[in-house]
Simulated assay, not measured.
Amino acid sequence: MPPTGDPLANRYRRLLLCYPRKWRRLRGEEMVAVLLASATPGRTRPTPRETVNLLRHGLRSRLGRPASYSVVACAVLTAVICGLFSAALASWVAWQTARPLPDRAETTALVAEVLPGYDAKEVDAPTALFTYYSQPLRLENLDSLLLGDGGEYQQGAVVAVVTAVPPASQQETLALAQRRLRETGWRVYPPYVVPGPTCTGISCDPAARDTTIFARRGDTGLDLRLPARPSVDSTPVTVALRRATPPAVLPAGVLGGLIGAVAGWLVFGWASRRTERPHFAADAVTVLHTITLLLWWSPAVLAAPQLLQHHRDEPHPVWHPLWEWLGQPALSLFFVVGAGCALCGLALATLPRRDPGPLTTTATG
């Protein structure tokens, strides 16, 4: 469909790009002529109704199988999960724009600012924003990450062990930290009290609970953990610093998600049209696609409600990244096996059919 000088005709042709190429080659000019004949004189743009109809029927025609209702649901599920995976990948790339984690000197200065009179005795400062077993992810760790041990891939944090001599009570440290955080420009969240007793033995006091303060200033999130009974020999006070989500993550995730969803729909539609009966592998491709959807969606269905409850239970100045909401890479084995099934199905779809079959037509109404 070569362009012409008529702007309305050219806009109709652009909308018809949502139809398969074979359909456009055989019916495209005929459809444009019908649309132009029904248009009011002087109009230069398609009406909203025409636009919606052309997009809806064009995308549906890409799926083939006009007698099937389930193919649309499968296409939607495929497009959504592909969009989510693409958004997670794009957001991971955008996370690399975050500033490096605070070094030991910056962490020590921050502890002195927030908790005057306390000393940062030990400072563990990772060299990466995301770490695998507290170390930067390396290629030699990739197989372990993808094959069952991905839960250890987490956002890195600088952790400082803070002490005071003599040890102060939990309430004294809590009051001091909250006051100093507010005075130095931090947004302070309500304290989070760890549920359940934190001690054992005859002298255990069930009322004693560890408490955590969450705060954020700029692109830095702070977690201050206060043990129930501070002492020289007990669990020490710890300060953890991590970077907040960079501004580039949201637009990158949205753009990546849209691209992935469109690509997922188009690839699914291509495979669906290619394997319409009497294709000899139609049943095999259907089974492989069903397995793929189950393996890709199951981690997200399991992880998202748990993370949502986790976020509701305690404050989160820094939200968990998108891929963790999809159960990745903790359950990446599901993704790997599902990807293998998807590739097998696409490989079968490339094989020639016994009969090319008639062209599927779809009216625009």
Rank of each mutant, 00 (worst) to 15 (best):
M1T: 10
D6L: 08
D6E: 10
D6R: 02
L17T: 11
Y19D: 12
R25Y: 03
E29H: 00
T40C: 03
P41E: 14
T44Q: 11
N53S: 09
L54S: 03
L55F: 13
L59C: 11
R65W: 14
A75N: 08
V76F: 13
A79W: 10
A79P: 00
C82S: 15
G83L: 06
L84Y: 11
R99W: 07
D103Y: 03
Y118N: 01
S134V: 03
Q135E: 15
L139R: 10
L142Y: 07
D143Q: 03
A157N: 00
Q170G: 02
L176R: 06
R180H: 12
L181Y: 05
Y189V: 06
Y192L: 06
T200D: 14
S203Y: 09
D210Y: 09
R216Y: 01
T238D: 00
L241F: 00
R242Q: 08
L255M: 10
I259F: 14
W265S: 02
A271N: 02
F280D: 09
F280M: 07
D283V: 15
L288T: 07
H289G: 12
V301F: 13
Q306R: 11
L307I: 13
P317S: 02
E324C: 00
P329R: 06
L348Q: 05
A349W: 03
P352D: 04
P352F: 11
